[in-house]
């Protein structure tokens, strides 16, 4: 590990100005990912600005009935928050599907959004990786493919974004509030992460020095149900092979009034399924219609040699969750054990 300096910021403004003054600075919150990457030599910051003690650790109600979640709110606290559980089960379920109890106790809302891919080649400094070292090449492109992207990837990067929470936030039309050297701005959660293109070094649309201060979740559409479902090869502490977040509200006549569908584990960012949503909105919610819509969305998939299963898995998950929510049955949790 390379030597670094450390400071504890007192206010968000101070954190941002410190960042601007110190080249090679990084914000540190729960440290569940950044510290690991520092140990591996993937991240080599000169200076750490600890933002975990900033007064950003509260979940507040907004005037319109939504929630403003401070960036330093711990994942386990957010998952357990009564308003989250009541109004946005998809978010609570997504949080609880992530990591382990110990990690959720430490990880923050802002840090969760900014966690890096778990692509093994990204974490191994002895092999090329365009995300870690721009221009060096992509070892995963001809490497082990099973956990890689099927949507939106490029020849420069086939990594996936690992967050569960971010998938739920994308489906909830949440907004990420940023504070930077040039002031405040807001970015939709669904647009916060980017596709790799020819610049996979950039995970997000964050500008240099910008700090996440909060995430705002709008009030749920009237009558909406929501749920998150994640497929993984062990029952806890495993990243998604594929996951789906669904928010659904139906009109009196049973047609779809509002639908939001987002996939995790398939792409370099949470994959908001706009094509499927457009096909479903205003239509009667039949299994047939769900299948058609989800397949239209996944027609864009370009699986690699080892991960075609992700397309059928995502299709199955989405159709199942849409129809189950329509029937009022799905709570989105993993299947019950005996």
């Amino acid at each position: 590990m390379k030597p670094f300096t450390y400071e504890r910021a007192a206010t968000p403004e101070q954190a941002v100005s410190s960042y601007a003054a110190r080249p090679g600075a990084r914000y540190l919150a729960g440290g569940t990912n950044l510290v690991d990457l520092m140990k591996l030599g993937v991240e080599r910051p000169e200076h750490l600005i600890d933002v975990s003690g900033l007064p950003l650790d509260r979940v507040e109600h907004t005037v319109d009935g939504g929630l403003r979640v401070g960036a330093a709110v711990r994942n386990s606290d957010l998952a357990a928050h009564p308003a989250v559980r009541r109004d946005h089960p998809v978010l609570s379920q997504a949080l609880l599907a992530g990591a382990s109890g110990q990690l959720r106790n430490a990880a923050t809302t802002g840090g969760n959004l900014l966690q890096r891919t778990r692509c093994p080649y990204f974490q191994d400094t002895s092999v090329p990786c365009n995300k870690r070292e721009p221009g060096s090449g992509c070892s995963a492109l001809h490497g082990s493919h099973r956990d890689m992207a099927v949507l939106g990837h490029s020849d420069d990067c086939v990594a996936t974004h690992p967050s569960d929470m971010a998938v739920a936030l994308a489906a909830l039309d949440a907004e990420v509030e940023l504070l930077g050297p040039e002031g405040r701005r807001t970015v939709p959660a669904a647009d916060f992460h980017r596709l790799p293109g020819d610049d996979p070094h950039q995970d997000t649309v964050l500008r240099p020095g910008e700090l996440i201060v909060s995430v705002t979740v709008p009030p749920p559409p009237a009558g909406a149900r929501s749920a998150y479902r994640k497929a993984r090869e062990r029952a806890s502490y495993a990243f998604a092979l594929a996951s789906v977040a669904v928010v659904l509200a139906r009109a009196q006549d049973g047609t779809v009034r509002h639908v939001a569908l987002a996939f995790g584990g398939l792409a370099h960012r949470p994959w908001r399924a706009r094509t499927a949503e457009e096909l479903l909105t205003g239509a009667p919610l039949t299994t047939e219609a769900c299948s058609r819509a989800v397949e239209a969305e996944l027609a864009a998939a370009r699986p690699l040699s080892g991960n075609a299963f992700k397309v059928s898995l995502a299709r199955s998950l989405a159709v199942h969750m849409l129809t189950a929510l329509a029937e009022g049955g799905a709570d989105g949790t993993s299947p019950q054990r005996a």
């Binding site: 974490q123 001809h142 082990s144 502490y237 495993a238 054990r337």
Partner: peptide, 29 residues
């Protein structure tokens, strides 16, 4: 575990990627 044919190395090298069973995988019965 899998061996990357290009690098010749094992791909899963930590306990996040090499999946020993978690407590949640073990049945009550």
């Amino acid at each position: 575990s899998s061996i990357d044919r290009a690098t010749g190395g094992f791909v899963e090298t930590d306990l996040a990627s090499y999946h020993v069973p978690s407590c949640a995988d073990v049945p009550e019965q």
